[in-house]
Design a protein around this nucleic acid. Structure first.
Length: 122
DNA sequence: AAGATGACTAACT
DNA sequence: AAGTTAGCCATCT
């Protein structure tokens, strides 16, 4: 082993954040992912809350598509009337994401279905 | 040091 | 269908 110590180093917090940011950066336009899925894709199953943290603390310079992350119910996790909530909704709608009574169909707008949408339309 | 908090979630009632 | 409970995990009091 290259590493002198046999102990496997747990990823630092910074490392976890970087993984989370990388996943979020990869969400295509017009698609959404929920916090739990982002965590899973970042190799951090069960750490949905950490995703919210990572987004809150993300450097401005990174310009993440943070608005493409919603909760597992397909709803925006900010109060609908709050400025942040309205901005997130506006950004998503501008990308063609539909809200049905404030709820997004996660299946329909998942990145996995992005290619289907291109071929077949919404 | 123990409890509260949050950009969460799944499983119950 | 909506509210509660329990589990989650890093920070902040």
């Amino acid at each position: 082993m290259a590493n002198a110590s046999r102990k496997v180093e747990a990823p630092t917090q910074e490392e976890r954040f970087r993984r989370i940011w990388a996943v979020v950066e990869g969400i295509p336009e017009g698609c959404v992912l929920n916090y739990g899925e982002v965590a899973r894709l970042a190799g951090l199953p069960g750490r949905a809350r950490l995703v919210g943290r990572a987004l809150a603390l993300a450097p401005k310079q990174r310009a993440l598509p943070w608005h493409r992350v919603v909760n597992a119910q397909g709803k925006i996790s900010f109060a609908a009337e709050s400025p942040r909530g309205q901005r997130q909704r506006r950004l998503l709608e501008a990308e063609g994401v539909d809200f049905d009574d404030g709820v997004i169909d996660l299946e329909r707008f998942s990145p996995e279905r992005a290619i289907d949408r291109l071929l077949w339309g919404p």
